[in-house]
Design a protein around this nucleic acid. Structure first.
Length: 269
DNA sequence: GCCATATGGAAAG
DNA sequence: TTTCCCTATGGCA
């Protein structure tokens, strides 16, 4: 599901599966029919990710701009498209001889040109997964009274961080999400950036979010392994009420900027 | 069947 | 700050 690592991973999958090939583009659901017709039958050059935005580049300098939103999915499957009825609401289907990909529930799926693509990228902050310099993010955070937990999720500050990485990076840094950005020493913000680069890069490789250090794995702590319904091992995300993996204090939950927020009130200050 | 929920973001008020 | 959009899923009548 869609934080920046998912989108960067998708860009790689799409580039490998379809890059350099003529691709059929359709909209079984119909809502992207006009856009699909524009690019269908042209060569898919490559796909790029900027934060949580995916751009699928076709010959002729046209891009399909996709944003998965909260529950969009984009499944890339080897083998041509299956015969028979399409299952569910497929906004866009990419099809080649040996691969197909189905997009469902995106918040955005549109054909754009270079200028619109550049405009989207320009309003994003540096992206830990693009090797960007964090300078602009450090400045924004360093002079902001907004909570660090809100700033990390602001795509204009840091691109690609979502609710899971936000919660986990702050836990790993021992920082209370409510701390004003300006109160966090710059070296600490730098270390959070470096941590995000490592965590999110691993997420691209594995396709899941794992943030628990080996010494805190349940097995290492003498507890039974934990079954996690979103597929990764995390310290605090959606573990409210359960004991902190480090100190045992119940994990707290709240809302910040209309999103769920989780933290350990004992470990994070 | 109905309702709540979800790793997001933009628009409306 | 609230509302709305996009889709699938699991819990509960």
């Amino acid at each position: 599901m869609p934080e920046g690592h998912t989108i960067h991973r998708l860009a790689g999958e799409l580039s490998r599966a379809f890059g350099g090939r003529v691709v059929g583009v359709s909209s079984p659901q119909g809502r992207f029919a006009a856009g699909a017709a524009v690019v269908s039958g042209s060569v898919l050059v490559r796909a790029e990710a900027h934060g949580k935005h995916l751009f699928i580049g076709f010959a002729g300098r046209r891009w399909v701009h996709v944003h998965l939103g909260l529950y969009g999915k984009f499944d890339v499957v080897s083998g041509g498209p299956p015969a028979g009825p399409v299952v569910g609401q497929v906004r866009m289907r990419l099809a080649a001889d040996d691969a197909h990909a189905d997009l469902r529930g995106p918040t955005r799926c549109e054909v754009v040109g270079d200028a619109e693509k550049d405009a989207v990228a320009a309003r994003l902050g540096p992206d830990p997964l693009r090797g960007d310099d964090p300078g602009r993010a450090l400045e924004r955070i360093g002079r902001s009274r907004a909570p660090i937990g809100v700033l990390l999720m602001d795509q204009a500050v840091v691109a690609g961080v979502g609710n899971v990485y936000r919660a986990e990076a702050l836990f790993r840094a021992g920082l209370d999400p409510a701390r004003p950005g300006a109160s966090v020493p710059e070296p600490v913000v730098r270390s959070i950036w470096a941590d995000l680069v490592g965590l999110m890069s691993q997420g691209v490789r594995t396709g899941r979010i794992d943030t628990v250090r080996p010494e805190h794995e349940p097995e290492a702590m003498g507890r039974p392994p934990r079954v996690d319904d979103h597929g990764g091992e995390v310290y605090v995300y959606r573990r409210n009420g359960q004991p902190c993996l480090v100190c045992g204090t119940p994990v707290a939950a709240g809302r910040a900027a209309a999103r769920n927020l989780f933290w350990c009130p004992n470990c994070q200050h």
